[in-house]
Design a protein around this nucleic acid. Structure first.
Lengths: 117, 117
DNA sequence: CTGAATACATCGCCTGCATATATATAGCGT
DNA sequence: ACGCTATATATATGCAGGCGATGTATTCAG
């Protein structure tokens, strides 16, 4: 699977991260890998994107975090909360509506564009 | 239909504009309205967004334009060309792959989020 | 011991959309 | 005639957020 245009992912990265976190607590690096696998290699969120994003979600009180210093590897575990789940539901619904909108738009011109090779 | 979060539309405005133009030549203001109607009011692309976007598409040789000064209302008609149609096909395919990716991601956590009211 | 992988963080740059502003004409009501 | 709204295009300014680069530190494999 080819990498997606980054501009396309703007506006749905939050949604993706919240989705992954909805499956259970994760630390950043793990989340990064799971998102990569879940998208079959298409989504490769960079560290410089992920960590600020997580900090933003935290300051918005959608997730809470906790350091685990018990091992040599310091890990910061993130867990989605009720507000986060609610936000996820809202954003998921909004995204589906948007996707329907685009799909409709594309369907009306489907015969006006050349077939992809 | 409520207005979409602008961040959500980033990266797909080109796609939408090319889609509308694939149906036939349009001038900016008309395109703006047709996109508004086609999305049942959800997409309201602003003039300050639309015109620079059209200029970009033009300088990328995906559309060509022509002034119509025959009436008092100066209108700049835009028409999609072969390169534009090809780009539209590519972007449409890319978008559908991306949408599938998100849909899959959301499906796996569908039972972990509260039902929207 | 060296290099790669793990793990988190921050900074500066760039893209692209929003807002605001500007210009000018057409058409309508009063 | 006057003012308001709609039509029609254009640019400047600002900002949010993702990217690449860079930094720190630990673990593990060769």
């Amino acid at each position: 699977m080819a990498k997606f245009n980054p501009e396309l992912m703007r506006g749905s990265l939050d949604l993706m991260v919240l989705s992954i976190l909805a499956a259970g607590p994760k630390y950043g690096y793990l989340l990064q890998q799971e998102l990569h696998e879940a998208s079959r290699g298409a989504v490769d969120i960079q560290a410089g994107t992920l960590y600020p994003l997580l900090h933003r979600l935290e300051s918005d009180k959608l997730i809470r975090c906790q350091w685990d210093d018990s091992t040599g590897r310091r890990r910061k575990w993130y867990e989605i909360n009720d507000a986060g789940r609610k936000r996820l539901a809202v954003q998921a619904r909004e995204w589906q509506e948007y996707a329907d909108c685009i799909r409709t738009l594309l369907a009306t011109v489907a015969d006006a564009v050349p077939r992809p090779a």
